[in-house]
Amino acid sequence: MNSRARTLLRVHCTVLIPAIAPISVGLMSTAELDGITVAYDDLGTGLPVVLVHGHPFNRSMWRPQAERFSREGYRVITADLRGYGETTMPPESTKTGLDVFAKDICRLADRLGLGRFVLGGLSMGGQIVMEFHRTYPERVAGLLLADTSPQQETEEGKRVRNEMADRVLAEGLNPYAEEVLTKMVSPENVRTMPDVAAHVLGMMRTTPKEGAAAALRGRAERPDYRESLTRVEVPALVVVGTEDEFTPVADAELMHDLIPGSTLAVIEGAAHMPNLEREAEFNDVFARFLKEID
């Protein structure tokens, strides 16, 4: 059991953060792993940090963090999950479980020669991180869990996710993207940070529908991670935006209570994407966390 005292941070915005330009994926590397081609960026040297994107996004959601921390002495790896961005998936796949995503991360880490590394994820990416920790705890040097939840899916949630998978296959991602934009990014930030809103909308619109549908079906069957979180023995940072409707502050507080010695950072004025909506505040909290590990 980790004996470190738990920490709560409430991060306030003292100035309006200017909108950032649309973020490109940059120079891409690829790896052939278990029948798929994984697209990833590997920037910098030092303590390895692997960041896992959420649904329905791609690795470019982590570009602000990859660029900053790769300059500050960290090796930051961001990859597109199978069926997302520029990573392929088997054409016959109709369901991708969180365990499959976790195995992909493990295989990529092995290919890149990573032993133990800091692992972080947002939303579905956070649940993949929890699955990875549950399965490969010896590989994890630290955990970042952003705007995510540890609970098993409810029966109603299973129905909704499977119906959404059918809808995505029939319609593509455009209608869904338009509907949820002001939940992914707060309405105020959509108005004042149009470049961030455009980046988030663009990621959602360009996500392959087959990959998104397969992940929705797999995520509907996710296990409960609450018990495994009580066994975390490495530094852990839980982050959430105050305006997040998908995974509200209460979910973050639950994880904070479950993880021994964890730090909870509540980012004011952000919804589901605090790393983009409040980039400076998010990065400052993450920087302090990484220094603790390093």
Rank of each mutant, 00 (worst) to 15 (best):
M255T: 06
T242A: 01
A215E: 05
L254T: 11
V239T: 15
P48N: 08
P260V: 09
V38D: 08
T148R: 14
M61L: 13
A214C: 03
V129S: 03
N58K: 11
Y40S: 10
V232M: 11
A250F: 00
G85T: 04
E72L: 09
L216T: 06
D166P: 08
R222T: 10
G126Q: 09
R217G: 03
M184G: 12
T182P: 11
C106A: 15
P235E: 07
D284S: 11
V129N: 01
R107I: 12
L173H: 03
L145K: 03
T247I: 02
F286Q: 15
Y225Q: 06
Q65D: 09
R139G: 03
I17Y: 06
R10S: 14
M193W: 02
E243N: 00
V52T: 03
E292T: 07
H133E: 08
G211Q: 00
R63K: 10
V180H: 00
H55I: 12
F117T: 09
V196F: 00
V100F: 07
T87G: 08
D104E: 15
V160D: 10
D224L: 02
G269K: 01
E131Q: 13
R111P: 09
D80E: 03
P56G: 00
A170N: 14
M61S: 03
G44I: 01
N174T: 14
V76G: 05
T207Q: 02
G115L: 14
G172Q: 00
R107T: 10
D244R: 02
F289D: 00
V239Y: 06
L216I: 05
E92T: 09
K209C: 05
V25Y: 06
D244P: 01
P22F: 00
E188R: 13
G85S: 11
I77G: 04
T7G: 12
A146S: 15
T7R: 11
G218Y: 11
P175N: 04
S24K: 06
E92G: 07
R205T: 05
T45V: 13
C106V: 12
A39F: 00
I105G: 08
